[in-house]
Design a protein around this nucleic acid. Structure first.
Lengths: 120, 120
DNA sequence: CCGAATCCTCGGCGATACTG
DNA sequence: CAGTATCGCCGAGGATTCGG
């Protein structure tokens, strides 16, 4: 279910990082979980661009990789909460690094995107 | 050519980082360029899992976003070299962060993958 | 060697409906 | 509310060809 068809060189730490947190929405999910949004419906609200189904898949992979843990409450209506594992908290450093760079790059980026809009 | 269909919230630095360097092979390309592999054929050899065409697309996006610059030599046979721009060098910090985390996570990761192989 | 153009395949993802 | 199953579309990306 979680097999990747493309055999990357997984002896390199960079590739492992890409594999584990490089998914389309994984960094966002982790950031939101860290902010305290733990339930699937909350996460979906904060990332409406992706369907609940896809977010579930990404969360399942994160859980499989040991980055988040899933707690299921047997109540009605059902309740599920995700949280970062101890090991998962280490990836926050990576997220901070990405966010920090992105903030600094924001102006340049938006200038480029604006230009792109004009030539279209 | 470079438009993204999915409108993310681009006011967040994290999303910008994902947008610019989150492509499937971009981090690898940047790492290899930084290592001194500058020609398309070299890059393709170092990342044989992706076709030359796809690598070209990713490089074009990196160039469009101002992370790498492309130098074309008008000689026969043709010669092209990519290099990091001044601004592009800043992303190396992010790559280091990812690689560092990945190295630390390597053992756990491979244990999980191994287990996955067994249950298949 | 570089890369544009073409064709074609395949799987990611949305939509919907259903169960617990 | 959470999660699975099914269907169908669309586009990313591989393979190939050609031109410079």
């Amino acid at each position: 279910m979680y097999e990747k068809k493309i055999p990357k060189d997984l002896s390199c730490g960079l590739n492992i990082a890409i594999e584990v947190i490089g998914g389309k929405w994984k960094a966002n999910l982790l950031a939101n979980i860290n902010k305290g949004m733990k339930r699937p419906s909350e996460l979906h609200k904060s990332i409406p661009q992706a369907s609940a189904r896809v977010l579930n898949q990404q969360l399942a992979e994160l859980e499989f990789h040991g980055i988040v843990s899933k707690k299921i409450f047997n109540v009605l209506p059902p309740k599920v909460e995700y949280s970062l594992t101890e090991g998962g908290k280490d990836v926050l450093e990576v997220l901070y690094s990405m966010k920090s760079w992105g903030e600094g790059y924001k102006k340049t980026f938006h200038d480029i995107i604006k230009y792109e809009g004009e030539i279209h």
